[in-house]
C-alpha cells in the first residue's frame, strides 16, 4: 500500500513552466468567458430597450406578456426582493468588521513602536536592539495592501448599491403575484391586428434564434471549463531532449490545439448574434411603424421595458452581492491571520523589552 509522497515532484524548471502555463490558460479561459458574458449582457440590454419579446406577445394589451411572467417567476424562484435586501444590508457590516480587524492589527504595531522609540530616545546607545520601525516594515506593507483591497471593495459596493437602488422598484413589481403584476402595468389598445403579420413572425423567429445562440453559449462555457490537460509530460520531454524548456512556444501551441476549436466556435457565436440583433432592430422599426402608437401604448411599453431590465439587473445583482459577501468573508480569515502575526510579534517585542529594561536597571 506504499504511496510515493514525492510522486508528483518535478524539477523546479518544470514547476515554473507549469505555473506560467496555468496562468496563460486561466487568462484565455477568463477572457473567452468574459467576451461571451458581455455579449449576453449586450443582447439582453438591446432586447429590453426594444421591449422584446414582450411587445410581440402583448396580444390583449391588458394581460402580462409571457416573457414578463417567466422573468417574474425566475426572480421569485431566486428568493425575490428579500434576497437582495438582506445581502445588501449585510455588506456594510462585513466591510466594517474587516476594517476593525485591520485597524486593530496596525494599532498593536503603532503602540509598541511608539514605546520602543521613547525608550530609544531615553536610553540612546544603551538601547541595543533592532528598532521596531525596521522590524514592522513587511507587516506594514502587507497592511497597506489590505487597505488598497478594502478601498477597491468599497468602490464595488457603491456600484452594487447604485444598481440596487435604481432597479429595486422594478424588481419589487416583478416579485408580485400575477394579478398585482398585471395591475402595475398600464393597459393599452391591443395589438391584435399585428399578430398574424409577417414582421411579428420574423421577430419571433429571430428571437428564437437568439435563444439558441445563448443556449449554445452556456454549453460552450461549460465545455471550456471542463477541458483538462496536463502539460507536465510535454515539459519533461522537452527538458530531457533539449535540456531546456521553451515554455512560451510549447504552451501557446498546446493552448491553441486544446482551445482553438472552442475560441473559433465562440467567435462564430458572437458574430451570429451581431447579425441577428441588427436584423431584429430593422424588423422592430418596421413593427413600431405599423403599431398604433399612443400615450397609453408608450406608457405600457416603458413599464414592460423597465420590468425586463429589472430582471436582468436582478440576476446580475444577486451574483455581485454573493461575490461581495464571499469576498468579505474570505478577507476576514486572511485578516485574522494577519492580526495574529501582529499580536505575536508585538508580544515577543514586549517580552524582550522588559528583559532589556531589567538589565539596564541592574547595570
Amino acid at each position: 500500500k506504499y504511496t510515493d509522497l514525492f510522486e508528483k515532484m518535478v524539477p523546479l524548471a518544470i514547476q515554473q513552466s507549469l505555473s506560467i502555463y496555468n496562468q496563460r490558460k486561466a487568462d484565455l479561459i477568463n477572457q473567452t468567458i468574459a467576451r461571451m458574458r458581455d455579449s449576453t449582457t449586450l443582447c439582453n440590454g438591446v432586447l429590453a430597450s426594444l421591449n422584446l419579446p414582450a411587445a410581440i406577445e402583448d396580444v390583449s394589451g391588458d394581460s402580462v406578456p409571457q416573457s414578463i411572467l417567466q422573468k417574474s417567476k425566475a426572480v421569485i424562484e431566486q428568493g425575490g426582493i428579500q434576497t437582495i435586501d438582506q445581502l445588501i444590508r449585510d455588506l456594510p457590516e462585513l466591510l466594517q468588521r474587516n476594517k476593525e480587524i485591520l485597524d486593530e492589527s496596525l494599532k498593536f504595531l503603532d503602540e509598541e513602536e511608539a514605546t520602543d522609540n521613547d525608550l530609544k530616545s531615553k536610553f540612546k546607545e544603551r538601547w541595543q536592539r533592532t528598532p521596531s520601525t525596521e522590524l514592522y516594515k513587511p507587516l506594514r506593507t502587507e497592511g497597506s495592501n489590505f487597505r488598497n483591497v478594502l478601498d477597491k471593495a468599497i468602490t464595488a459596493d457603491a456600484v452594487v448599491k447604485e444598481r440596487y437602488q435604481s432597479q429595486r422598484e422594478a424588481i419589487a413589481i416583478l416579485c408580485k403575484p400575477e394579478a398585482e403584476l398585471n395591475a402595475a402595468i398600464p393597459s393599452a389598445n391591443p395589438a391584435k391586428t399585428m399578430q398574424g403579420s409577417e414582421v411579428v413572425n420574423t421577430l419571433k423567429s429571430l428571437l428564437a434564434q437568439l435563444d439558441e445562440i445563448k443556449k449554445e453559449r452556456e454549453q460552450l462555457e461549460n465545455d471550456i471549463k471542463s477541458v483538462n490537460f496536463d502539460m507536465t509530460t510535454k515539459f519533461l520531454t522537452a527538458l530531457a531532449q533539449d535540456g531546456a524548456i521553451n515554455e512560451e512556444a510549447l504552451s501557446v501551441t498546446e493552448l491553441d490545439r486544446v482551445y482553438g476549436g472552442y475560441t473559433d466556435r465562440v467567435q462564430r457565436n458572437l458574430t451570429k448574434q451581431e447579425e441577428i440583433i441588427s436584423n431584429i432592430q430593422v424588423s422592430h422599426q418596421e413593427f413600431s411603424k405599423m403599431k398604433q402608437s399612443n400615450s397609453e401604448a408608450n406608457l405600457r411599453e416603458e413599464v414592460l421595458k423597465k420590468l425586463a431590465a429589472g430582471h436582468d439587473s436582478y440576476i446580475e445583482l444577486v451574483a455581485n452581492l454573493r461575490e461581495g459577501t464571499k469576498f468579505y468573508n474570505d478577507l476576514t480569515e486572511i485578516l485574522l491571520k494577519f492580526q495574529g502575526k501582529c499580536s505575536d510579534i508585538v508580544f515577543a517585542r514586549k517580552t524582550e523589552r522588559d528583559e532589556l529594561l531589567k538589565d539596564l536597571q541592574q547595570s
Partner: peptide, 16 residues
C-alpha cells in the same frame, strides 16, 4: 468580477 481578487494576498502569505 466586481470585487478585487484575494489571490495576491494569499500568494504573499505563501511567499512569506
Amino acid at each position: 468580477s466586481l470585487y478585487p481578487s484575494l489571490e495576491d494576498l494569499k500568494v504573499d502569505k505563501v511567499i512569506q
